[in-house]
Design a protein around this nucleic acid. Structure first.
Lengths: 363, 363
DNA sequence: CAAAAATACTTAATGCTTTAAGTATAGAAG
DNA sequence: CTTCTATACTTAAAGCATTAAGTATTTTTG
């Protein structure tokens, strides 16, 4: 690509032709009130005739210190955001908030090999949407010294945080299942670490987890399970991503265990939907033979042939809050949004119709 | 938000402390080969200790003329891209191509009130994904004088174009319906104009259409319908957007006509899915009482309780091609990607099972 | 009609980096 | 030991705009 911002004429060129100072030309473009309409028109007309494309964004940015865009940093391959309904919903909120404020929205991938692009992106602030909790990656971002907001994940001192009560919500899921009488549970989680591991996990791996959301949800499940009452057995499977396919893989493992779990908790709806597919394949009746609970309440959870019990979280709102927090417009350092347990057919034999659901506020 | 790119120390500050020239500091960051490892390390260490965040992107950009990001311009509210499966799939391809090349992906809304942000975005090129074919809006973009690519929509001389044979594909849809013996047709289209009109349209409105994709598809339908053979009646409904809800509204109108159409062609799957919902509500059997054909082959088309006949187009590939074309890496001025008619239960009584489908190459 | 105020425009400093070309030094080659 | 080359670093120009403060001119006001 040719150096696109170069070789396009400058304010000075226009000024010379019109016979005014550069200041006037600058004002013609960005502060109309400083000029007589007549001169302004003349300048703009000349600019057009000279093919002058308007003030160079880089120079303007250098001078004003304002880029007019914010970035969302995403740890997985960038295209996943367009494939994952939860990420899409969040970004939808971010996009809406950006549009309102006339800000551009820059999507950045973080992780190894992507440091340079994070370092040199022309932005006014960063929303950290997913990022492993490891020092190297964080450093690149923090080093920019830009305003930032962390969404879900870990938190950093003095950096605004927007999220939900992951642990409390997960706890409520597990309690729900426990209350239904299940004593053998399976848990399917999206990554705890950034190593693309796929398989059962041990305690150590859980405790060292560098994706906080997964860890908090896991902790929620486990605490509710261990919170007294009847003894409950648990098998855990970690997936390298959060797709239906990963859910299927997990289910193939968990459902072949003997004795088979009677309920599966998944840290995302996509995983849960994958689990249900496999259950159907093995002719297990849901919720009688197997109860399934997801997390997120993506549209597919409700639309599924067998509607999924899940935790509803306000993704769009999260996105809007994240932008607001980034711009320091208002609000506290920590914004915790409310969630609800949505009970549908996939877990509760008492829910008889597909369009029936029960909402329970969490906390 | 505080002026974030300001007040952060400069190359010069670091140079002074280390006691070297600014050039050396610059090289330490961006051209390691120009410096002894020892000096480089010293400079970077000092930079860290001074909280110098690395070269100012604006200044670097001003000097090099390279921004490191490209933009996708979208005419509807930006958050729609995260809600529309077709747009998501396209952007998914764009995102993948950007990641590969270490480019940032900036999402920009175009249209009234958004000119300034398009004018001042720090980018190296533009992918025009949707944009009404009206001079004012186009001008803002063209005026930037940046490399650009137009995807679908109108084309501009010497601007690379990536798209599909909309008209041919639509023609094949209509022929398919015609061959099945239908003589009363309804057509549901997404916007032909940017005026949010919702209702039946006349010839004039169609001919003056400023969204080319809609126009080309409409023309395809109509030409196939008028191409001799039995006489066929057509009712057309234009929607202000391309959602299921719009499809429902359209269906409420079309299905109340007397006599009722026996087939409905929709310019998008989302519209078609909305139509099918209403058909179900009225207890119409699909495809016997009503055949429905969509366009795009989004995942929901296949997953629908009654799988939808539609045109499959390679969205991700379109995105990747658009980026490639923007970077002038290869390829001709016009890239036309192949499409297929995917025949499923919603149109063809001969398709008996939900998971059965027939593919027909278009052209 | 003189003084004050508003309007319209200019001056000039400043923002921070990149990079071709130049210089000094150390090491290799003859 | 001289000459050449490579290495390591410096010089200085250029990239393009914004904007506070100043000047000249016109309009308003008393």
């Amino acid at each position: 690509m040719r150096p696109s911002l170069k070789d396009r004429g400058t304010l000075t060129d226009v000024a010379k032709v019109v016979g005014v100072s550069v200041a006037s030309v600058s004002y013609a473009f960005s502060r109309p009130d400083q000029l007589s309409p007549k001169l302004r028109e003349k300048i703009l007309a000349t600019a057009r005739s000279l093919n002058y494309p308007g003030p160079n964004p880089a120079a303007r940015m250098l001078r004003t210190g304002f880029a007019g865009s914010i970035a969302v940093v995403y740890a997985s391959p960038l295209y996943h955001v367009f494939q994952d309904p939860a990420a899409s919903a969040f970004l939808s909120g971010v996009a809406e908030a950006c549009s309102e404020r006339r800000l551009g929205l820059l999507l950045l991938q973080c992780g190894e090999g992507y440091e340079s692009i994070i370092r040199s992106a022309a932005i006014d602030g960063l929303i950290i949407y997913t990022m492993p909790n490891d020092a190297v990656t964080i450093q690149t971002v923090v080093d920019r010294g830009l305003p930032m907001v962390i969404v879900d994940q870990f938190s950093l001192p003095n950096v605004p945080f927007v999220g939900i009560e992951d642990q409390a919500a997960a706890r409520v899921c597990a309690r729900h299942i426990k209350a239904l009488g299940h004593r053998r549970l399976g848990i399917v989680t999206f990554p705890l670490h950034a190593d693309r591991y796929c398989g059962p996990i041990d305690k150590r791996r859980l405790e060292k987890a560098c994706f906080e959301v997964a860890r908090r949800r896991m902790q929620g499940y486990l605490r509710a399970i261990d919170a007294g009452g009847p003894k409950i057995s648990v098998k855990i499977w970690e997936c390298p991503r959060s797709s239906e396919e990963d859910g299927r893989t997990a289910a193939e493992y968990l459902l072949k265990k003997n004795p088979r779990p009677t309920a599966i908790l998944a840290t995302s709806d996509r995983l849960a939907l994958g689990v249900m597919e496999v259950a159907r394949k093995y002719q297990l009746r849901i919720p009688d033979d197997l109860a399934v609970v997801g997390f997120d309440d993506i549209p597919a959870a409700r639309m599924s042939a067998l509607p999924l019990t899940t935790v509803r979280q306000p993704f769009e709102e999260k996105g809007r809050f994240a932008v607001a927090a980034l711009l320091r417009e208002k609000g506290p350092l920590r914004t915790i949004l409310p969630t609800k347990l949505i009970i549908r057919q996939s877990s509760d034999p008492g829910v008889l119709r597909a369009d029936q659901e029960r909402e329970i506020d969490i906390r």
